[in-house]
Design a protein around this nucleic acid. Sequence first.
DNA 1: CTGAAAGCGCTTACAG
DNA 2: CTGAAAGCGCTTACAG
Lengths: 340, 340
Amino acid sequence: MSSKITIHDVARQSGVSIKTVSRVLNREPNVKADTRDRVQAAVAALHYRPNVSARSLAGSKAYLIGVFFDNPSPGYITDVQLGAIARCREEGYHLIVEPLDSTADDVEEQVAPMLATLRMDGVILTAPVCDHPVVLAALEREQVPYVRISPGSDLDRSARVGMDDRLAAYEMTRHLIALGHRDIGFIVGHPDHGASHLRHEGFLAAMADSGLSVRPDRVAQGYFSFRSGFEAAEQLLTSDDRPTAVFASNDDMALGVMAVANRLRLNVPETLSVAGFDDTPGAKVVWPQLTTVRQPIAAMAGAAADMLLKGVAWEDGESPPSKLLDFELIVRESTGPAPQ
Amino acid sequence: MSSKITIHDVARQSGVSIKTVSRVLNREPNVKADTRDRVQAAVAALHYRPNVSARSLAGSKAYLIGVFFDNPSPGYITDVQLGAIARCREEGYHLIVEPLDSTADDVEEQVAPMLATLRMDGVILTAPVCDHPVVLAALEREQVPYVRISPGSDLDRSARVGMDDRLAAYEMTRHLIALGHRDIGFIVGHPDHGASHLRHEGFLAAMADSGLSVRPDRVAQGYFSFRSGFEAAEQLLTSDDRPTAVFASNDDMALGVMAVANRLRLNVPETLSVAGFDDTPGAKVVWPQLTTVRQPIAAMAGAAADMLLKGVAWEDGESPPSKLLDFELIVRESTGPAPQ
DNA sequence: CTGAAAGCGCTTACAG
DNA sequence: CTGAAAGCGCTTACAG
């Protein structure tokens, strides 16, 4: 029943034309206050909701925002969705989720049809999709506005939001150094994620600024997964010649380090300090709880949605809009004074 | 450019009417093979993609499936999304995600407008939303087909998919008993989730069938969160009079148990066996890795999407379609022989 | 087996 | 400040 109410019913009930109802719905100017009130009363009385398909077909807005991602950590993508939806709802927009396989050959075929069938008003991209040239090119070709979260390359190609990954890693490293650690291991994140490089840089800069050298064998390659952290930690910790602290550049890998420490009977933090990055739910799921960097993921996604809803545009020669949010160092129990 | 191609362009290029193009697109019968081939060639040549809004407005399908959830574990909801999308893509459908706050007073206001604006072809519901009377009533009023995943009440109200939670909990309990455990603690899940009760029942039945009694103080209430598992475990494990095994009815709570065991210096599994349920990514993130039940979450969501796409309908007096998928006992290192 | 007409529920562009 | 007309790109219902 209520689903059959159209703009004509509202117009009839309030004694105006459908165009005037449309004006009220879209908050257009030039409507007499009295008329607007009558229309709004009719909308409320009839429980009228404009049909998104009709609006989308007739007008320029689809009321749909997309989120593209590829196999991220579940906690990360859930936070992104919740953050984006909170902002979208305020304006009556909905969220379409589109997981992509960015390592496949057919990325173009995954993206192009979806963009052509569904005229989304904007798309939010997370790593590593946000740095995928084929995806970006398809979006630009179809003229779909997009905002990237923490892109790693080609920063001035689009609007973006993020945080200062480099500085955050820098500060975490300084935290470890302040605890007396001199020999610190580092686990690099997935090479396809831009943030990996920034975090790595921040670590190296903090060490250098403190006059500490980093042995090449103290830096291990990871891929942001628990397993990769586990394997990197085995490599870093198995011999007696091991660092007194390991800084894994995300929490999942840090949990892998904790597991190895447990297995090797290295007490955390007495014998080994472990630090992570992200403050995912998992950080509180280990004992001792993880010292980490809180990344404001939901807020970043909300800011990305906000940009899209307000319209991302910039002048030729200018940089696209970008927004950097604050991070926070979360010191829990997994880091402590270095053993002397 | 390519976004401007319409059905008229395809019709012109293939020398037929738009109605015939429409027939080919919708795989309707009664099109000469030769004609169909010509149309399909034109579609391919022009990279034509039908506009979803237009199809939705003119016809009965919106090509949109919704997923409603409330604050679930991130791993769970991600699996649901991936499983549903895999099936939806095959038919050109897209997924809209709608988190709900099911404990708020305004559930009706969260659901009704969304249902009226976006004419979704179907909705997939996860716990606890799948048992929320207001949500179900709104769906039925708006005549939106829905499939529930693991509902706990009113089972014959709608189509559903799930697994045999009761049997799975039964088998896990038998596994512990087979290892020699006689005194087993149990942590119940969130009371709003139907599966909680079934898992609890399965535990009790297995104990009873083995002639074992369950002391009331061996059963603790949890809420499916890490923290609730942690607190329940403190209650269960703090005194010397403690069970030799704890079966937590999901993995997040089991991780809480592991953390408490760690803190109390109870070796797992030598001194204490711990079992979980779900096989979330977290199950492999602890050391020792968790013995648990693998719940085929993505497959359940895929089956739900499949039902929706094929059309869920049933005769009066018949039961709605339901599908039960297989679970699997995953025995890892967190369970072992009972200490004598 | 194929097509011409009408219409889905809105917004755009224009007129007054 | 308000409205009548046209049209967005499809599908439905009907005709042949």
